[in-house]
């Protein structure tokens, strides 16, 4: 008898039909959201983009 394969990010798809029609982040994507080194790089990148947008808006 085969064991159940539980994939955490797929559990929400069981809730209802509309929940199954989108994408959810996996472990890697979630870990990158709180990885301080990666987020510091993204912090710089987002700031640069925002400064450009602010500059284009004035």
């Amino acid at each position: 008898m085969s064991e159940k394969k539980i994939v955490e990010e797929e559990l929400n798809f069981q809730r209802d039909f509309k929940s199954a029609l989108t994408m959810v982040p996996g472990k890697f994507a979630k870990s990158m959201r709180t990885c301080v080194i990666w987020q510091f790089i993204r912090f710089l990148a987002i700031n640069i983009k925002m400064i450009i947008v602010v500059g284009k808006s004035h």
Binding site: V36, W38, Q39, R42, I46, K49, K56
Partner: peptide, 14 residues
């Protein structure tokens, strides 16, 4: 190029 969105600590710091 200037319409974007992402989730993470970086936005939180901002």
């Amino acid at each position: 190029d200037y319409t974007f969105g992402e989730i993470g600590l970086a936005g939180h710091w901002i």
